[in-house]
């Protein structure tokens, strides 16, 4: 196991915020592990504890078999960390940033160029541009290159895709897949639920607690209800109508559909609904059973 957390609790003394409540999980070597949850769920606190920046109030965390509190110096040599905010020097050029971080870890760009080549080659045409003048997607690639330059055994990426457009996000996940194939353990967090399926295993986290931890497919399989997708020409009217129905347990909009679960999803419930809908006068009504996504699971697991 590359990462082990045992009953980790963390309360920030200044603000009194209870960021983590008894968190335990393990990440084996070479896994691409995702922490999925909204802002304030505790993702960053977990990263900071694992990267030895923060002491937990109680519990024990080990990284590469080393205790994060007593062996922080050794751990710091072996991990790569990309914090949530863009944490490079905006007034240094792309190349200067990379050079600096290489030196910081006692290595050179040449030594590990192979590892970062695929990523760095995309920003190399701009190597003389100050990092602050790069676009979101390119900043992220540079930050990843800097975090990788010393060939770390574990890569910690805290919300690398936040605020980045969908195209750059897709590219980024491709890069992570390649790095995983190099044998690097990767722990990544994201608030975008659709990215969860790109990880091997994920932990859904909310309010400092883990809601569920499994492979994305496993989490989807555990979804306890039959889920239906409905749509009509008047989506907001349909949403209000469904919410008012007694047979409906939950209804949330999901893109072009609303996702509905029923209190008692027997065979007749769909037919009954169709009749109700027709009576209420909704046009182009459509209903079909659908497989739940990670976001459906997250909503279902969230304590109400």
């Amino acid at each position: 196991m590359d990462i082990i957390l045992q009953n980790i609790c963390k309360t920030y003394t200044k603000s009194g915020v209870e960021a983590l409540k008894d968190i335990s999980f393990e990440v084996p070597k070479g896994e691409l592990f995702g922490l999925i949850g909204p802002d304030g769920a505790g993702k960053t606190s977990i990263f900071r504890i694992l990267t030895t920046l923060l002491y937990p109030n109680s519990g024990k965390a080990t990284v590469l078999g080393l205790d994060t509190q007593t062996h922080f110096k050794t751990i710091r040599e072996k991990i790569g960390y990309m914090p949530g905010r863009f944490s490079l020097y905006q007034d240094l050029t792309v190349e200067e940033n990379l050079n600096f971080f290489a030196r910081l870890f006692n290595t050179t760009i040449a030594q590990n160029y192979e590892l970062i080549k695929d990523i760095y080659i995309q920003i190399e045409p701009f190597k003389n541009r100050p990092a602050g003048k790069l676009s979101g997607g390119m900043k992220q690639k540079l930050a990843l290159s800097c975090a990788l330059i010393h060939r770390p055994e574990i890569l910690f990426l805290d919300e690398p895709t936040t605020g980045v457009d969908a195209v750059s996000r897709k590219e980024f996940w491709h890069m992570l897949k390649r790095l995983k194939n190099e044998g690097i353990t990767i722990m990544v967090s994201t608030p975008y639920m659709d990215e969860a399926t790109l990880c091997e295993r994920i932990a859904l986290i909310q309010n400092g607690q883990i809601l569920s931890i499994d492979s994305p497919e496993g989490i989807q399989r555990q979804y306890p209800f039959r889920l239906f997708a409905v749509k009509s020409s008047n989506m907001s009217g349909l949403l209000r109508f469904l919410r008012a129905l007694k047979t409906v347990q939950s209804v949330f909009s999901f893109g072009e559909y609303h996702h509905v679960t029923f209190l008692n999803a027997n065979a007749s419930v769909v037919d009954e609904l169709k009749i109700d809908i027709k009576r209420a006068g909704f046009d182009q009504f459509e209903i079909k059973e659908t497989t739940p996504g990670i976001e459906d699971c997250f909503i279902q697991l969230m304590p109400s």
Partner: peptide, 24 residues
């Protein structure tokens, strides 16, 4: 401008409810 970044899925939907109300 990106009003729902980082917000949890339920609150995100509640936010859109507000948007619909305003549009109505």
């Amino acid at each position: 401008d990106e009003p729902t970044g980082g917000v949890d899925p339920i609150t995100r939907r509640q936010f859109w409810d507000l948007i619909y109300q305003a549009a109505d």
